[in-house]
Design a protein around this nucleic acid. Structure first.
Length: 170
DNA sequence: GTCGAGATTATCT
DNA sequence: GATAATCTCGACC
């Protein structure tokens, strides 16, 4: 199946308070310290799986979290995996949803993106994108000081979920 | 459409 | 024992 990535978040390793690598290398984030082009998956909140792409050389821990995407091919399979989704745009709108739709599990952690299981390729033409503060990150890592969220404006698969700070109702 | 709270478990301190 | 890079459901506008 094919997925067009529409939203990501950057994590700059040990200098990023929101990164799993902020407190140093652990057993879980060991993959991020490895060579680039690999898949870093992790289990969070006791029930969700998220996928990252390692993008820094061995020894450093930067990665890109796949937050949302559009199912281009194999949408029927994605629908079976995401029964709760009412629309196609919901199939991969959100990090955990994206993993479910693609069938990514913890067992895929460390897999290469040029191997038989996964293949990553760049688009023929670059897409316009916007930047902003990250969401879902606890602590100071989720503030405007770390505007490392990138998405394609206007794309229906980009999550509006908690995209803006809670505002009081007058 | 938007807001608020609960669910549930691997991992880290 | 506390925490967490989230999702879903129910209530309200």
């Amino acid at each position: 199946m094919t997925l067009r990535i529409t939203e990501v978040e950057a994590y700059l390793g040990e200098v990023d308070p929101g990164s799993h690598a902020f407190r140093g290398r652990t057993n879980r984030n060991a993959v991020m310290y490895g060579p680039p082009g690999h898949l870093y998956t992790y289990f969070t909140y006791g029930m969700h799986v998220c996928a990252n792409v390692v993008c820094s050389p061995e020894g450093t821990a930067t990665a890109v979290l796949l937050r949302a995407g559009e199912i281009v091919d194999g949408i029927e399979v994605a629908r079976l995996r995401r029964v709760t989704s009412k629309t196609d745009a919901d199939l991969a709108r959100g990090p955990a949803r994206l993993c479910v739709a693609l069938g990514i599990t913890l067992a895929d952690g460390g897999a290469g993106l040029s191997g038989p299981r996964f293949h990553l390729e760049l688009p023929a033409t670059p897409s316009p994108f916007a930047t902003g503060p990250r969401t879902g990150v606890s602590g100071e890592g989720g503030t405007l000081d770390y505007p490392w969220r990138f998405w394609i404006p206007g794309d229906p698969t980009v999550s509006p979920y908690k995209a803006s700070v809670p505002k009081k109702r007058s």
